[in-house]
Simulated assay, not measured.
Amino acid sequence: MLTNDNTEETKLHLAALESYSTGKITPLLKEELKYYIQSRRLSEGKNELVVDFNTVPKKSQQLRPEEVARLERRREQNRRASEKFRGKKKTELQNLQKVCQHLEKRNKELLREVGNLQAERDAMYERVMKVLQMHDVKTY
Rank of each mutant, 00 (worst) to 15 (best):
E31Y: 00
Q101E: 14
N116I: 11
V99E: 10
L103M: 12
Q94G: 04
V68E: 06
N6P: 04
D52W: 00
N54D: 06
S60A: 13
K105I: 07
L12E: 05
Y125C: 13
A119E: 07
L17N: 06
H135V: 13
V131A: 15
K90M: 09
R112K: 09
L33N: 11
E92K: 05
E44L: 15
E126V: 09
K88C: 12
L93S: 08
V99D: 09
G23K: 00
Q38L: 08
D122I: 07
F85A: 15
R64H: 03
R127Q: 08
R73E: 14
K84D: 10
A15K: 00
K108N: 11
Q118P: 03
V137N: 03
R127I: 10
T26A: 14
Y140G: 10
E72C: 03
K108R: 09
R75A: 13
N116A: 14
A81M: 06
L71F: 03
Y20F: 12
E48K: 04
G115Y: 01
C100Y: 07
K84Q: 11
L49Y: 02
K88P: 03
E113D: 07
E48T: 06
Q118K: 09
R70Y: 04
C100T: 09
V128A: 09
L14G: 04
V131D: 09
C100G: 06
M124E: 14
R64C: 06
S82V: 12
T22G: 01
A15S: 02
V51F: 06
K98H: 06
E120H: 01
T7E: 08
F53H: 09
V137W: 02
E48Q: 03
L12C: 04
L117C: 02
L2N: 07
N4A: 15
E104P: 00
L63H: 00
E126L: 10
E32K: 08
L14Y: 06
E32A: 14
P57Y: 00
L71A: 14
K90H: 04
L132C: 10
K98W: 01
D136K: 08
Q101F: 05
D136I: 07
K130R: 07
Y20E: 15
K130I: 03
G87L: 14
R41T: 04
F53P: 10
E72Y: 00
L42S: 03
V131N: 11
Q61L: 13
R121I: 13
M129L: 14
M124F: 12
Y140A: 12
N47E: 10
K98G: 04
Y36N: 13
